[in-house]
Design a protein around this nucleic acid. Structure first.
Lengths: 160, 160
DNA sequence: CGATGATGGTTGAGCGTTCAACTTTCCGCC
DNA sequence: GGCGGAAAGTTGAACGCTCAACCATCATCG
């Protein structure tokens, strides 16, 4: 008779250590990133990403759906976020011309200015925490590793 | 005359790609982890870590400070979390015997049971998302990479 | 002994996120 | 044309986290 009960393969000591250190590194990274962005731009990283994606889009505007997919957030989360960004005057909402369901978010000049002001500090932070401590080979290895992690979920970006 | 204005070293295309993919991989990981834990144990990952650290501690109890350091959270965050875990009956608070300032949190039997029930699924999830897609060499490389990222912040765990 | 600062912890308000409804608009098809 | 379902967004409540303020207790040193 086949045993159909899947027994758990626990983590080896090495894996355990990698996992815990990974968690720590992540905490480090997010803490630094969010602190820096909150201080210099008055917004969390998720909001920065929204502005960044909009700034790179043609005419600096995107559908809510497109935007949600690009920053990997749920429709609800994005809607709340854009509402807040609208209050600060960095993003505007308007109805789509032809499709009555969709609304398109556009980056205002104020929003772009804030983004431009925050970008250098943000890049410096990413560099100093993630890239500077690594050798060029390690950066390359990291690239392959994250690619391998993302690969199985081909395209399907989860709603965080 | 020396130029003291630090000009930003922008990310190269390769670095940009690594960074974006890293963000994506992270989203993937946290989304899956939090979804699984929320579904199977009814708690976020931060709470799981609290229970896990307590379960490994002698007599399954730890000072709030110790606990906060181990899970890398601020005193405030931990206090709120433990309050909540107390309401569900998974953790108990009591005053320290000799030092009147410190309070010690202890894992209840219910809390241990919940943790034990959630652990296998959690480990499976970590394995299937992080370790399974990687070759043994890549796991080793990842270990060195995260170690290199953590190293500069020697011991100083940030309050997330 | 008493003042001073350090240590350990809690609290409340505000913000961001999630989750489950819900509305509106569009599409396909009888 | 009208009906059922899919697609696009929004909303409100509950929850977790942050930040600043705060309280209590210990340690030190004059």
């Amino acid at each position: 008779m086949l045993c159909v009960v899947k027994s758990t393969r626990w983590l080896s000591d090495d894996e355990q250590k990698v996992w815990r250190t990974y968690l720590l590194a992540n905490q480090l990274l997010w803490a630094a990133l969010d602190r820096q962005l909150q201080r210099d731009a008055g917004m969390p990283h998720a909001y920065y990403m929204i502005l960044a994606m909009l700034s790179e889009a043609p005419n600096r505007e995107l559908t809510m759906s497109q935007l949600a997919r690009m920053v990997g957030s749920s429709p609800s989360r994005l809607s709340h976020a854009v509402s807040r960004l609208e209050q600060t005057g960095w993003v505007r909402r308007r109805k789509h011309d032809t499709d009555g369901r969709t609304t398109v978010a556009s980056l205002t000049d104020d929003g772009f200015a804030v983004l431009a002001a925050a970008a250098p500090g943000h890049v410096d932070e990413v560099r100093s925490i993630l890239f500077d401590p690594l050798t060029p080979e390690q950066v390359e290895q990291l690239g392959e590793i994250v690619a391998a992690i993302v690969a199985p979920h081909n395209g399907r970006v989860p709603h965080v």
